[in-house]
Write a protein that binds this DNA or RNA. Sequence first.
DNA 1: CTGTTTCCGTAACCTAGGTTACAATCGGAA
DNA 2: TTCCGATTGTAACCTAGGTTACGGAAACAG
Lengths: 222, 222
Amino acid sequence: MMNENNLSDCPLFRGMSKEEHDSFMQRNVKEVLHFEKGEVVVRQGDIINSMYLLIKGVVRTQMITQDGNTIEIDLLEAVFPLAPAFIYASRNKYPVDVVAMEPCTFLKISKSAWLKEMAGNEILLNNFLTLNSNMTVFLSEKLQMISIKSLRNKLSIFLLEKTTPEKNYFILKRSRTQLAEYFGVQRPSLARTIKELEDEGIISTNGRVVTVLERDKLVWHE
Amino acid sequence: MMNENNLSDCPLFRGMSKEEHDSFMQRNVKEVLHFEKGEVVVRQGDIINSMYLLIKGVVRTQMITQDGNTIEIDLLEAVFPLAPAFIYASRNKYPVDVVAMEPCTFLKISKSAWLKEMAGNEILLNNFLTLNSNMTVFLSEKLQMISIKSLRNKLSIFLLEKTTPEKNYFILKRSRTQLAEYFGVQRPSLARTIKELEDEGIISTNGRVVTVLERDKLVWHE
DNA sequence: CTGTTTCCGTAACCTAGGTTACAATCGGAA
DNA sequence: TTCCGATTGTAACCTAGGTTACGGAAACAG
């Protein structure tokens, strides 16, 4: 059943053998779900009772703030679990929308089944803890990024992280529209700031290819 | 040794007996740390190898963004663990500054000792998982709050959460200066917005006592 | 190929909030 | 009590980014 995908790619199942993966699936997967591009998989505020394992496709997690703005949290690619950090929470409402970016397949694993597996498998438990911790670190960093005041600095830091002095270009994973939501700003505002950096000769862009020409002039325009 | 404090108040040690608490301490606490008001306990970026258990005092966790702004993350009161969510992370750098708000005492418990305890104690493991999940939920909510664009809406939502239609007042835990950092804005900006709400008769303030006069006029000034 | 939709750049204008500065008040220490 | 530092309110000014609107390019379906 559904074992054409490689569970080893998933941080939850790392360090386990193919046989263990298969028997795990046999025991615990009772339901397989498909979603088409654009469909909402989980809505912000939904109560979660299961772990969703994304085994095919890409989803986007996003938040709608109370004043109606959308911010992207992350893009998740198969194989990856949804919600692991939340099934244990005291108030287990899902904090983000999950939207399929392409046709997606999920395996549904019940919370209780998952707990049982983890109790009897130290590797699984370890992977789970690490994943949770990494999620916390990720959210902290996201918080820090969103808290940076000027778009120019947000963008600068983003560009510096995506490149090195040796490899001064990279290819954007996102459209400009999505990139704007990632930064939590309006699309025209992002376009304006990108243009400024281009006009100053600090970067150049060609479609989704972005080249950093003068690393040292990024950041510290307070 | 240092058992005048009630470990039952700590979400990590809930559901365990006094005897278990005591023997836990005997086994694992090798070091006790004191900090005076204003001292920095941990600095953003420090590598963490131990769990710090705050058993007396109050600390503030804060982040300095790359453009130099300070945002408050949380106020933590004893008894509460620092860092539990991070000791397992792949990249275990502490993401926030921790500053003592009053004289504080910490117990230091090594990462490995903690792991060993957890492996042999289901309650401890469960508490730990729940705490981690709750941390993730908390950070998600914080992210959502910070992402709200207008200060007026941030403040409105804050006020609505702090009061009910029945009990329409509350006492601020923070100074105005700290409150501004909590929202990630400048102090004069916060003062201005509070004044606006007062001028419009929506709230009234008297020192740290804030009263909401017209709940339904809060929020939705887009 | 053509029609349709989504994406993108751009410009003009406006507003929320940052910035700075100063004076009043409060609170603890001597 | 007086002094000093930290905390506040307030005002004037400035700027980053939001808003809206429009036209063109790219992507896709038929």
